[in-house]
C-alpha cells in the first residue's frame, strides 16, 4: 500500500489532501457544534439599538418588527427618529457601510418632541389612545385625554387620528437640569474663524 503510494506521487498527494480535508472538516464541524457561541440573537441586538419610538415611519408596526426586518435583510436606513447615529451603530453591528438616512421615511428632527393634547378641545373619542403604541395617553370615552409626557416617544401617531386636531407635537424644552456643555469647535476653526476645512470645502464642491 505504502509502496504503491510512493510509486504514484499523484495519487499519494490526492490521498493526503483528501484525508487532511476530512480530518479538518471533522474537527471544524465538531468545534462548530461543541463551542457554539450563544450570543444575543441579532434581532435582540438590533432592537436594543433602535430608538423605540414605535412610530412606524419605517413601514413596520414598531421597532421590533423593523429589527426583525433588518435581520431578514431590509435596509437599515429607514429610521428617522434614530437618525444617522442609529444607522451608524447598526452599520457597526452588522459590519456594513453606513448609508445615509432614507428621506422617503421622513427627516431626522433636531429636537425631541412630545405630544400635547389641548385638553379643552378634546372630545374624548379615544382614537389617540388606540393609536398610541406605548399606552402613553390616559383617558376614557367622553372623558378628556391627556398625554403622559415622560412616556411619550414623540412618534406622531396620535396626531393624525384626532378628529378635532387638538394634539400638538411640542418640542421638549431644555431646562437647567438637562443642560450640558457643548463640544468646543475643532481647533482650526477656533484658530482664525475660517470655516474652510477639508470637509466643508469638500461638501461645498
Amino acid at each position: 500500500m505504502i509502496q504503491f503510494l510512493l510509486d504514484n506521487p499523484f495519487l499519494s498527494a490526492l490521498v493526503a489532501l483528501v484525508s487532511l480535508a476530512v480530518t479538518f472538516g471533522a474537527v471544524l464541524g465538531y468545534a462548530a457544534v461543541q463551542f457554539k457561541v450563544e450570543g444575543d440573537p441579532i434581532v435582540e441586538q438590533l432592537d436594543a439599538l433602535l430608538p423605540q419610538t414605535q412610530c412606524g415611519q419605517c413601514g413596520y408596526p414598531g421597532c421590533r418588527p423593523y429589527a426583525q426586518a433588518i435581520a431578514d435583510g431590509d435596509a437599515i436606513n429607514k429610521c428617522p427618529p434614530g437618525g444617522q447615529a442609529t444607522i451608524n451603530t447598526i452599520a457597526d453591528l452588522l459590519d456594513v457601510e453606513a448609508p445615509t438616512l432614507d428621506e422617503e421615511h421622513g427627516e431626522e428632527s433636531e429636537v425631541k418632541k412630545v405630544a400635547y393634547i389641548r385638553e379643552d378641545e378634546c372630545i374624548g373619542c379615544t382614537k389617540c389612545i388606540q393609536a398610541c403604541p406605548v399606552d402613553a395617553i390616559l383617558g376614557a370615552a367622553k372623558q378628556m385625554h391627556t398625554v403622559i409626557a415622560s412616556e411619550c416617544t414623540g412618534c406622531d401617531l396620535c396626531v393624525e387620528p384626532c378628529p378635532v386636531d387638538c394634539i400638538d407635537m411640542l418640542p421638549v424644552e431644555s431646562t437647567v437640569s438637562d443642560w450640558k456643555w457643548h463640544k468646543p469647535e475643532p481647533y482650526y476653526q477656533r484658530a482664525s474663524n475660517i470655516i474652510a476645512s477639508d470637509k466643508t470645502s469638500g461638501a461645498a464642491a
Binding site: 432592537d47 433602535l50 430608538p51 421590533r64 402613553a136 415622560s150 450640558k180 456643555w181
Partner: peptide, 22 residues
C-alpha cells in the same frame, strides 16, 4: 461628553421603558 453620556443613558432607559410598554 459626560453630558451626552448622561443623556444617552436617560434615553436608553426611556427606550427600554418604551419597548416594555410597546
Amino acid at each position: 461628553a459626560k453630558g451626552t453620556l448622561r443623556q444617552m443613558d436617560i434615553e436608553r432607559q426611556k427606550s427600554d421603558r418604551s419597548r416594555q410598554r410597546f
